[in-house]
Design a protein around this nucleic acid. Structure first.
Lengths: 150, 150
DNA sequence: TGTTTATTGTTCATGCTTGAACTATCATGT
DNA sequence: ACATGATAGTTCAAGCATGAACAATAAACA
């Protein structure tokens, strides 16, 4: 009756997910270092990326996209707004919401940051074929989906 | 000359890594919620897991394993020690280091927490075959390795 | 031996994230 | 129109993680 027989480390899901978490953590920290010269942090880059793809977003929608509290957005945006990287314009129809969009300099900084990010990912995923890479993304999208609605 | 042609979102590595990061974030938050009844946080679970597998570790080694600063460990351990989940015993040969090990109740709590963790992973990775799962882990170990030595 | 350098763990100030309470605005239903 | 409830954003206190500076100890070497 050795309980090691049922240890999670013998389970593929567990063992491999631990690797996912570690890799994610490593990349996050490496990204933070690589973005430092741009005076940008990963969380701020996430904001810029989402505003680039979804201009006119509200803060609430942005918070949901980033899986983060609304108050976090409130604390995050003024820094970027003061650096003239994004605009917050109040919606004409609903005076509660603020519509977010990148300024040209915000877009320019985003492009620089994305080059940095891509450089890091190219180095880090060098050994994965495009097919493996797509399979990876597919699994991860399923994982995120499984946690979405609940 | 549309710069969208070279946007990172068209690049498999970028697009799929974004999915990895999002999934990781989701699982982390779901795990935090699932562990709440045990009054345990993901970072604390990481500590218990590592001490279970590597009893007698020093705080420095633990910090490196967890990809975290030493001061973080210093702030993290007293909570767990006060709950009688782990012991810190000074090394006889080197009076600087503290040897860490789980107490029986620490091990018991770890087992409970692992059941919770496994339950979450089973739900979340339900759609991935063992082979896919292993490939996933293999890629992630390569990613972590690529960031290791530098 | 004595001096210099490295390493372990701690302390502390800083910044980030969270969740709860709050205000202002809109939507619903009577 | 009016009451009720829902939603967007803010404020605030609390908890975590970080990195720099520090004390104690060990290692390297003259």
């Amino acid at each position: 009756m050795n309980n090691k027989q049922e240890l999670p480390w013998d389970n593929p899901r567990f063992r491999n997910w631990v690797a996912v978490a570690r890799a994610c953590h490593s990349v996050e920290r490496a990204l933070a270092g690589a973005l430092a010269p741009l005076d940008l942090k990963p969380a701020q880059l996430d904001v810029l990326m989402n505003l680039y793809r979804h201009p006119g977003m509200s803060q609430h929608d942005l918070a949901r996209k980033l899986l983060v509290g609304r108050s976090n957005i409130t604390m995050l945006l003024p820094q970027l707004e003061n650096r003239d990287l994004l605009r917050r314009e109040s919606d004409g129809k609903d005076k509660r919401v603020l519509r977010l969009s990148l300024t040209p300099s915000g877009e320019a900084l985003l492009m620089d940051a994305l080059k940095v990010y891509m450089g890091l990912l190219d180095k880090v995923m060098e050994q994965s074929t495009p097919a493996e890479c797509d399979l990876l993304g597919e699994q991860m999208r399923r994982v995120a989906e499984a946690l979405k609605v609940e």
